[in-house]
Design a protein around this nucleic acid. Sequence first.
DNA 1: GTGAAAGCGCTAACAT
DNA 2: ATGTTAGCGCTTTCAC
Lengths: 361, 361
Amino acid sequence: MKKSGKKNRPAKGGNSDGRARATQNPTIHEVSRLAGVSHMTVSRVIRGLDVVLPETRERVTKAIEDLGYVPDRAAGGLSSRRTGFIALMLPTLTNANFSAVAHGLTEALRPADYHLLITYTGYSLAEEERQLRNLLARRPEAIVLTGTMHSRAALKMLYAADAPVIEVAEMVRQPIGFAVGFSNYEAGRTAARYLIDKGFHRIGAIASTNDGDLVDHRGDERMRGFADELRISGRPTEFVLRQGKPPVSFDHGTAIAPLLLEKKIDAVFAVSDLSAVGVVMECHRRGVKVPGDLSILGFGDFEIGREMCPRLTTIHVDFHALGEATGRVILGLLTGKDEASPTIVDVGLRIIERESVGEPK
Amino acid sequence: MKKSGKKNRPAKGGNSDGRARATQNPTIHEVSRLAGVSHMTVSRVIRGLDVVLPETRERVTKAIEDLGYVPDRAAGGLSSRRTGFIALMLPTLTNANFSAVAHGLTEALRPADYHLLITYTGYSLAEEERQLRNLLARRPEAIVLTGTMHSRAALKMLYAADAPVIEVAEMVRQPIGFAVGFSNYEAGRTAARYLIDKGFHRIGAIASTNDGDLVDHRGDERMRGFADELRISGRPTEFVLRQGKPPVSFDHGTAIAPLLLEKKIDAVFAVSDLSAVGVVMECHRRGVKVPGDLSILGFGDFEIGREMCPRLTTIHVDFHALGEATGRVILGLLTGKDEASPTIVDVGLRIIERESVGEPK
DNA sequence: GTGAAAGCGCTAACAT
DNA sequence: ATGTTAGCGCTTTCAC
């Protein structure tokens, strides 16, 4: 079993002429020959069609085992017109909430034997467009991507696509096809409402800016909701601060903290927990008390916020459930039992009160 | 352009009978008809073979545009025997270092138009085996997975696979095919050496246990190296603590911290920064000074460790570079210019000294 | 219950 | 420079 230390593994794959080829996978024909049946019977066994006589099935199964045969799904898909691919485009995989979406979707899809084709756009619309084109070449049976903002060309492809489109992580009002998410705008308003009701006066918010092609549209929506609620309550919006480009992380908060302090803000809503944590860290360093001197409300309920000190008050959205709900919509569409898959699913959100928001002085 | 709010998008995809079908993508033949050439000429244009007369190419390109034609790669692959898939199996996508591997690999592969087929095993060998089987059905041109520990059946498939196998994130001595990683064992020894040289006496370590099928083999190796170095230096290994199952996160550290304190350990190596951060947080809460009362050395150099207070001393491995190096090995193998892709690549590691390790009392 | 024929949408290998 | 033929490894459809 053990292979001696030859450099190029000449026995299997990756042979010296470059192209991976070599041993060649066995085909359905070789299996059928070994089992003494036609390739069609093998095909039936593979697909679990129970028309096959038990003893025939057994012979075929054995031949499959002996040969180590693995059916080629590309060939099968070409013929059946079902590729078994679900395309998933997310801004980044580094964000725990987006990877939770991927996890949830994977789990919901697991029983149905679909394969997730995951890509990340890095918050770039141009990249989204480029990847969409690539993805389309794989003929996905459904396309999942983060909602609302797309390039013209991407939009065109999406509308023309031969597969249902599900926009996630934002409560799209006029979805291309379907939407599973929550309202980022409402999240922003909820955040502002909460801070206002607490009685704070110098209320601010922090988020990234949009740097040309790089946009965090969902973060924008939260900021828009936040500012609107401030306005509605007759509060100034001058403390809604934007800095740096997406994705935001700890260093975003660290970098923007001095500005917060300088402006004597007493409560701030961070576009992401990650940024919020950065602010807390910087406050620690400068001897500024949280929440004594500055109250901080995050978004996303990242694990770190539950463990840090003070524990972070934040807005929670169940992204894992969002992924699962997306999977259920897809299954409904593709398995087609239930006629009416819901066009729009709102998974909601809620504030989790912990320690980083206190009382106004 | 805007579609009215019909529930089931009957126009495109996801039609009422379930199966996604509908408008049907145009084929190479329809393009060729529209352009007034044979389908082969279209094929040549698609693949950028520059034998085609510029004016012919232009006609074809226009037809492609007009029809919104996207070539079906499954069909092309079936014929050319090049699927353009690279399989990537990682324990989890939630871990920033593993997603860095995915990012690095993606970037290295970007120019070559490969598609990453990413799956995560949740540290389960059984799941790895299951997924490998699924992946194989897609005929990947290369298989990337975390090294060393595989089930018997998985091993068999890997050896029989018609594609080069690259084991990553561990310095595999006898790789199935290729290996790109670093020595987790050496990381453990380095950690112990560092703490010993600092002059600490009650030196401990924390990691997860292996819970049946769930194993963090790389973490194990770090612990093994750590304990070995302790032994070599004549130190007791009684403070090498194992608790909980993988994956390890903040709460692992939080939960194990009391034990650390109880045993009056003065310096500890955490199998992961995440766990280390949990310990720091719990110490904060209990008024235990870090590094005054307890020094902590992490592993993985996660972003949070750079931002927290005190900043975490840790062992850094460039996982992004690891992913890129993996991509280069693959490209070398598949593009096959250079005869000899290296069988084993060591990306190394280094200690980053920050604030969480102090001086012995 | 099983098999034969005819593709699925492309590309390889030859013509021309 | 372009076209023709013959598959790639499966599933569909229709016989038997």
